[in-house]
Amino acid sequence: MLMHRFAVTHKLRIGGGIVVALLFLLPVFWMVLTSFKFQRDIFTTPPTVFFTPTLENYSNYLQRSSIPYQMLNTAIVAFGSGLISIFTGAMAGYALARLRIRGAGLLGVLILMSRGVPPIALAVPMFLVGRSLGLIDKHIFLILAYCTFLIPYVMWLMRSFFIALPKELEESAMIDGCSRFGAFFKIIVPISLPGLLSTLIFCVILAWEELLFAIVLTNRVASTVPVAIANIAGDTVNGANWGALTAVGTMTVIPVVIFALLVQKWLIQGLADGATKG
């Protein structure tokens, strides 16, 4: 009886997981499906699943816009901000986890509270600073802007990871002649590599889809794909071009999915390590 109840519960959990996954994937599936439709097929009632596919939405918009250049900008900004945030945030998290710093708890709380500040409250001051320094519409300025919300995220994730590691690892390395920095980079970083890589993946995804800072701090040179999508959706003169909108949305999702598939081994390992060590 107990085994039968366990089997039923297991099947119910699997079924519930499948239903939740389908609910999350349905909008993505419909976006991809719509991107291959002619304009006349998009507004049919009831919506059609079977239709004559076309690549017109992709070819026309790629030829008439700067989407490829904006995709390159998005990759530069996302990976640049992710790498800088991992490097600085990991060291900050290690310092809060290991070093006895006066006021470390207060400092950590203040950094965490910065995540609660509305981004719009930071975008305008950043724009004024960037304009005075001549950095508006520059890749480096957008990268640094993204670091303001990525570094606290990295710091708190890695702090929990470092706290779970035994202190004897660094102590034995320092007895052998390593400095604190040497012990961190030679011992702690290799051990924490799965956690660092999984955190980097999440940072890249967060930066890839960010819109507010990109639309305020860029104009043309450093403009990203989310800005292009917002411009298409906001074209109220000719009406929203849903074919182009879904095509660009699909092109935005595909690189992230490919990147996640390539690094899924380290992502799963990092999540598993975080769950067992947290």
Rank of each mutant, 00 (worst) to 15 (best):
L2K: 14
M3L: 13
F6A: 15
T9Y: 07
T9W: 10
H10N: 15
R13Y: 09
R13G: 06
G16F: 10
A21N: 12
L22E: 01
L25S: 02
L25P: 00
F29L: 15
M31A: 05
V32R: 05
L33W: 11
S35R: 01
F43K: 00
F43M: 07
T45A: 11
P47Q: 02
T48D: 05
F51H: 07
T52W: 01
L55P: 02
N57R: 04
N60D: 05
L62P: 04
L62H: 02
S66K: 15
I67T: 04
P68E: 08
Y69P: 00
M71H: 01
M71E: 00
L72M: 15
N73F: 07
T74H: 07
V77R: 02
A78F: 06
G80F: 08
G82Q: 06
S85F: 13
I86Q: 03
T88E: 00
A92I: 07
G93N: 03
R98H: 03
G103V: 12
L106Y: 11
G108F: 00
L110M: 15
G116D: 00
P118W: 13
L122V: 14
A123Y: 02
A123S: 07
V124N: 01
M126L: 15
L128E: 08
V129C: 08
G130W: 03
G130H: 07
R131T: 12
H139Q: 07
L142V: 14
L142R: 11
L144C: 11
I151L: 09
I151N: 02
W156R: 10
W156A: 02
F162Y: 14
F162D: 05
F162L: 13
I163W: 00
I163P: 03
L165M: 15
K167S: 04
L169K: 01
S172M: 10
S172F: 07
A173T: 06
D176Y: 01
S179F: 12
R180G: 03
F181N: 03
K186G: 07
S192I: 08
S192T: 08
P194K: 03
L196M: 15
L197P: 04
L197W: 01
S198C: 12
F202T: 02
C203V: 09
C203K: 06
C203I: 09
I205Y: 03
W208K: 02
E209G: 13
E210I: 11
F213C: 03
F213L: 12
T218Y: 01
T218P: 02
N219F: 10
V221R: 12
V221A: 11
V221S: 09
T224I: 08
V227N: 04
A233D: 00
A233C: 03
G234T: 11
W242Y: 14
A247C: 09
V248N: 01
V248C: 06
G249M: 14
G249P: 14
G249N: 14
T250A: 15
M251H: 06
M251P: 07
T252D: 06
V253I: 14
I254M: 11
P255N: 05
I258V: 15
L261A: 13
L261K: 07
L262W: 12
L262R: 02
K265S: 14
K265M: 08
K265I: 09
K265C: 09
W266K: 12
L267M: 15
L267R: 08
Q269H: 04
L271V: 15
A272G: 00
D273N: 14
G278C: 11
G278Y: 09
